[in-house]
Design a protein around this nucleic acid. Structure first.
Length: 463
RNA sequence: GGCUGGAUGGCAGAGUGGUCAUGCAGCGGACUGCAACUCCGUUAACGCCGGUUCGAUUCCGACUCCAGCCUCCA
């Protein structure tokens, strides 16, 4: 039985989809005004693992992840760049898709863009006005009347009085109350805009998700997910909008990924301490980065550092060293079901990937023993390992290719390495160990590590 | 100040009322011409103070510290 932690109820609960065998999931995606950083990558990888696992468990998952392609930051950045908002967002979306592909993140089933749903957004705002949950102000903005919605604050445990006392909300004379938030924003001169009953304007930040989730999944659906900074105000406001407009419960359960930190501080745009996915992939292998992001529980904070990436690299090398040279059996035999049960048990506990990894490492130990003993079980264990690893989106490369890696600039290419290995083999044959060690040291100084076995010498790059 | 999490061995990171996490690193051994890879063995931990209990790292309470949200941010 799968249990998932719900941000709203603040506990793990047995998961039960609304429709049997069908799961509808909406995850808040990226506002595309800049390149994705590793924090975005974490949300992508986390929900990718979750989706892959739900599917492996036999559910039919519809995974929707939106793209917010209209907003203040986009308008500002496009202005700075001297390009249109479309030019900017199209470029950033292409880049995002490339980054995802690098990290082996499968594309969501639907990726709605806010600007494609303006009509639906307008009609939802109209509904909210009709029902008294929203009002058009004199300045052309439309605001949500927060006090009118009884459940306001239920996701993040806040009440309106406390927040008003905090008084960090902007003072805006057009609002009835400082807590009210904007649903529709009137356009300033020269800004991208759409025609609406309230004049030229564009959607506020939260309404697009309410509208798009409704269009793609319906009024109620199973899982709503997102990054660590979204519960308030974004998801709180989505609940207020959707439940007021649709007159029914919105998402059944809320999942939020943990933050990526740098030097114990959250990686964020405002702190300017972020690394883009591209930055990171310049230095580390993409699968190593995915391993790093998926080996920690999805809700825990994770520290981005050279050491953690090195750890990830070492762990992944252990997997591929075990798989190297072992044929993948077509039939896993009894072993498959046995390890799968333990792996699923771990994942059923709120997608506990660290526990799942522990099971995978046990397979590695058994696999290494079987390989050493020349047992036929090796191929079966390799097959289980590769299949279960695939649920986390790992271990699908050819082991040799992963371990040998790509030659970086100034490094020996594989032909040169192979040539030196042949020379060394000749030296060894002549029992000229001084020469053979010299060659090995020379390769080691290039980051190439040799491994002798009965079948010959193999090599891999350390990094 | 309000609201969420968290504090586990050298590091990363699960978990449990009394016997094992797991990975990296360390130590001893096997393998090897010597190594690397691998295998076997092994060291070592539960923030602080109380309480419940035969027994608590695990349950309860106080405290300290850390992070996140409360303003745009995944």
């Amino acid at each position: 039985m799968l249990h998932i932690y719900d941000t709203l109820s603040k506990q793990k609960a047995p998961f039960q989809p609304i429709e049997p065998n069908r799961i509808k999931m909406y995850v808040c995606g990226v506002t595309v005004y800049d390149l994705c950083h590793i924090g975005h990558g974490r949300v992508m990888v986390s929900f990718d693992v979750i989706t892959r696992y739900l599917r492996a468990r036999g559910w039919d998952v519809t995974y929707v992840r939106n793209i917010t392609d209209v907003d203040d930051k986009i308008i500002r950045r496009a202005g700075e760049n001297g390009e249109s908002t479309d030019q900017l967002t199209d470029r950033m979306i292409v880049a995002m898709h490339q980054d995802e592909a690098s990290l082996s993140v499968l594309r969501p089933d639907i990726e709605p863009r806010a600007t494609a749903f303006i009509g639906d957004i307008i009609s939802m705002v109209e509904t909210l006005i009709e029902k008294g949950f929203a009002y058009a102000a004199d300045n052309g903005d439309v605001y949500y009347r927060v006090e009118k919605f009884d459940g306001y604050g239920k996701l993040t445990n806040r009440n309106i009085d406390d927040m008003r006392a905090g008084a960090r909300v902007e003072v805006n004379a057009a609002k009835e109350s400082p807590m009210d938030f904007v649903l529709w924003k009137s356009a300033k001169e020269g800004e991208v805009s759409w025609t609406s009953p309230w004049g030229e304007g564009r959607p506020g930040w939260h309404i697009e998700c309410s509208a798009m989730s409704k269009c793609c999944l319906g009024d109620s659906f199973d899982i709503h997910g997102g990054g660590p900074d979204l519960p308030f105000p974004h998801h709180e406001n989505e609940i207020a909008q959707s439940e007021a407009a649709n007159g029914c419960s919105y998402a059944n359960l809320w999942m939020h990924a943990g933050a990526v930190r740098v030097a114990n501080e959250k990686m964020s745009k405002s702190l300017n301490n972020f690394f883009t996915i591209r930055d990171v992939l310049q230095v580390y292998n993409a699968e190593v980065v995915r391993y790093f992001l998926s080996s920690v529980h999805y809700r825990s904070a994770i520290d981005y550092s050279e050491d953690s990436l090195k750890d990830a690299r070492a762990g992944l090398e252990r997997f591929y060293q075990a798989l190297r040279g072992v044929a993948i059996a077509a039939d896993e035999g009894e072993l498959g079901a046995q390890y799968e049960a333990r792996f699923f048990e771990a994942m059923d506990d709120d997608f506990n990937t660290p526990r799942a990894f522990a099971v995978l490492f046990e397979i590695v130990t058994e696999l290494n023993k079987a390989s050493r003993d020349g047992s036929a079980e090796a191929s079966q264990l390799a097959a289980v390992l590769k299949r279960l690893g695939g649920i986390i989106g790992l271990l699908q490369q050819d082991p040799e290719a992963f371990l040998q890696g790509e030659a970086k600039e100034g490094e020996l290419d594989s032909d040169a390495i192979e040539a030196l290995i042949v020379q060394r083999a000749e030296a060894k044959k002549a029992r000229d160990f001084a020469e053979s060690d010299r060659i090995r040291d020379e390769l080691a100084s290039q980051g190439v590590i040799l491994k002798d076995s009965r079948e010959g010498t193999s090599w891999f790059r350390e990094s």
